[in-house]
């Protein structure tokens, strides 16, 4: 039997979250979409209109290239983070409770660092004058110190450093719930430790891995400080350009159009991966 809610008070329970969602998400997002069709006024700010100019400008090879780079970078960061964090978290969940707590507290404290701190921290660590290459020189591994930043490697390092704690914390519940007897069963059936990890642990947690990849990907897509602090202009992402247009060029309509486009691209990528996952599960 289906109970039909009739009175207004029946809806009161969902009123608060619905209201919060409206005020802090639907309305700002609506404003952004509306603004993406506004007309920019040269020398002034913008005026309400309904033009496709902003989207049209966006459809150039220059912006397509940047969009491609942004998506590629975010995907690479997601893959590297999960590749590092998955085995790490697996080993962590097999350790003593005390050790796990210490590690999780440490990761949470890394998480509390702001993007600015991480960016400047790494740019110092990767610099010629004070960076880790000096350590390598004193150990006799390198001849003379060199600068590792700005570079693509530096951007990757900074972003993976930032996403790694998130990735571990998202994977942790699923991995700690994993039945240890699955791995033991694989071992009694003749699998060595590495093989049982790849054959049993990874496939058994495929759904968690996919959702973690998506989460880290979306997170990395919005990253705009680290590419500026650790990368060359060619490593700047769409988020950097959006910030640049909105704040420095005062072109809010164009920034809004790019932001809407970025949201659409990431949403469709998420939808594709979810759809793919569903099909796999059904088969």
């Amino acid at each position: 039997m289906k109970i039909k809610p009739g009175k207004f008070s029946d809806y009161a329970a969902i009123g608060f979250p619905a209201g919060m969602l409206t005020v802090f998400f639907v309305i700002p997002f609506g404003i952004m979409i509306a603004m993406s069709f506004f007309q920019r006024v040269q020398g002034a700010f913008y005026e309400p209109a309904f033009v496709f100019e902003n989207y049209a400008r966006f459809l150039s090879t220059f912006f397509a290239g940047i969009l491609g780079f942004s998506v590629g970078l975010a995907a690479l960061v997601a893959v590297v983070s999960v590749l590092l964090a998955f085995p790490f978290t697996y080993i962590l969940t097999r350790m003593a409770r005390q050790t796990q707590v210490v590690w999780l507290v440490f990761l949470l404290s890394v998480l509390s660092l702001s993007e600015v701190l991480i960016g400047f921290g790494w740019s110092t660590l990767l610099s010629r004058t004070a960076g880790i290459t000096n350590l390598l020189v004193s150990l006799g591994i390198m001849d003379k110190p060199m600068s590792l930043s700005p570079s693509f490697g530096a951007v990757m390092t900074g972003m993976v450093y930032q996403t790694f704690p998130y990735t571990v914390l998202v994977l942790y519940p699923a991995l700690s719930r994993l039945d240890p007897s699955l791995v033991e069963a694989a071992r009694t059936l003749g699998s060595g430790p590495a093989r049982s990890f790849l054959n049993v642990v990874v496939p058994a947690l495929r759904n968690s891995i996919v959702s973690t990849l998506i989460m880290v990907f979306v997170f990395a897509l919005g990253c705009y400080l680290l590419p500026q602090l650790l990368g060359k202009p060619s490593h700047w992402t769409l988020s950097v350009l959006i910030t640049d247009q909105a704040i420095y060029q005062s072109n809010m309509p164009f920034a809004a159009a790019m932001a809407v486009f970025l949201v659409l691209v990431s949403l469709s990528l998420v939808a594709i991966s979810l759809l793919y996952g569903k099909k796999e599960n059904a088969g």
Partner: peptide, 30 residues
């Protein structure tokens, strides 16, 4: 001798069947 070289068959209390494999794939795993 490590577990995976002992070649003993074992049934676990919670059975520990691999959830991502079919019945046949589970049995054929070793």
């Amino acid at each position: 001798i490590p577990t995976h070289q002992r070649d003993f068959g074992m049934v676990f209390q919670n059975l520990a069947l691999f959830p991502h494999l079919s019945v046949g794939e589970n049995i054929a795993y070793p």
